[in-house]
């Protein structure tokens, strides 16, 4: 079996999704009775394109806004600004009625497989819900047939259709979640940390399943994860987020072979490698400190407080996104010198 290792050819296709300057600010009540609300900038100006059949990895530490970004794209959280163009048409702020039919093509898979399934419903009912919602004209029998077909496709025994979520293991629950997302044959699935709650031996099963489904249905995936080793495996392009800002966006080979942003370098070097020789002798860039509060992000470059290479300029000027090659963009003043 061959696997697509490079992104589908962009020149032939228009992007399926274009995100421009997307912002999500949550109002946080100010301290004191008459204080103004302060904005928590969860996502602060994100741009990217996603092409058909492509997987974009969104990586970053907790609190970097990656899950918020995924939900803002799906309009599950209303963005505060910017545009999300689905098949060329902006969907930010459009009426509920117009959004409804688009939901057929936009799906999501969650991190906690059990929590994402209604414990009072059988898995047959759970997987059928999107069909019942969008294609009520299909009869009961047809819906059941399709549910069973999809269950078999994702590796679940179809005779389990009347069982309840708590009767399944984590990996199987995630398969149920995938079946529910796939039943309408969507064009885009946002995968929000789909494997991080699973055991190591099961993670690979789920990743392989997602890749198979992607090939079979020409799916586009947005794969949100904090695990850079999984991301290296499944994603064509990778976007690194820090405090709601894009630090680096590049195709897989460039970013792992030649990371440009100091944050990307630190992230990659911090991932433990399951090989004692390599792990004990590798060079590491150790970041000090913790993520600053997104309520009061640092001035200039948001990463400067933890950056080992920070200079004066970083505190004053917000770095622009530089295109360093055909496939790599980076937001750092000094990416050439470090």
């Amino acid at each position: 079996m061959t696997v697509m290792t490079t992104a589908p050819d962009k020149r032939d296709n228009a992007p399926i999704l274009s995100v421009r300057d997307l912002k999500v600010h949550f109002p946080i009540p100010g301290k004191g009775l008459f204080a103004k609300d302060r904005p928590l900038k969860a996502v602060d100006g994100v741009d990217f394109d996603l092409y058909p059949g492509e997987t974009l990895g969104v990586v970053g530490e907790s609190g970097c806004g990656k899950s918020t970004l995924g939900r803002a794209i799906l309009q599950l959280i209303a963005p505060s600004g910017g545009q999300v163009a689905w098949l060329g048409k902006n969907i930010v702020g459009i009426p509920h009625r117009d959004m409804q039919p688009l939901r057929r093509d936009l799906q999501i898979i969650f991190q906690d497989p059990l929590a994402s399934l209604n414990p009072r419903m059988t898995i047959g009912e759970i997987i059928a819900e999107p069909l019942v919602t969008h294609k009520p004209e299909l009869g009961k029998d047809e819906i059941k047939t399709r549910v069973k077909r999809m269950m078999a496709r994702v590796g679940l025994l179809p005779q389990m259709i009347n069982r309840y979520p708590h009767e399944f293991s984590g990996g199987q629950c995630q398969r149920i979640g995938i079946a529910r997302a796939m039943i309408l044959e969507p064009k885009l699935i946002v995968c929000d940390e789909p494997v991080s709650a699973l055991d190591v031996s099961i993670q690979a099963q789920i990743v392989n399943l997602l890749q198979e489904l992607q090939r079979e249905f020409d799916l586009s995936l947005i794969f949100i994860s904090h695990d850079l080793s999984i991301v290296r495996h499944i994603c064509h392009r990778i976007m690194v987020l820090y405090l709601g800002n894009v630090m680096e966006l590049a195709d897989r080979d460039s970013i792992y072979a030649n990371p440009k942003h100091p944050y990307t370098k630190a992230l990659i070097s911090a991932v433990p490698i399951p090989d004692p020789e390599i792990e004990r002798n590798k060079e590491r860039i150790v970041l000090t400190g913790d993520l600053p509060s997104p309520l009061s992000p640092p001035s200039g470059c948001v990463f400067r407080t933890r950056c080992p290479f920070a200079q004066e300029k970083c505190a004053t000027d917000v770095p622009t996104i530089d295109r360093v090659s055909e496939t790599q963009e980076v937001a750092c003043h000094f990416h050439n010198s470090i």
Binding site: P119, R120, T122, I123, K148, R149, M151, A152, G155, L157, P158, Q159, M160, I161, N162, R163, Y164, H166, E167
Partner: peptide, 18 residues
């Protein structure tokens, strides 16, 4: 095999939380 068992096997009743 899965697909075949899909048509052949009897559906198993689940144990609901109730």
């Amino acid at each position: 095999a899965l697909l075949q068992s899909a048509s052949a096997a009897k559906e198993i009743e689940g144990r609901s939380l109730w």
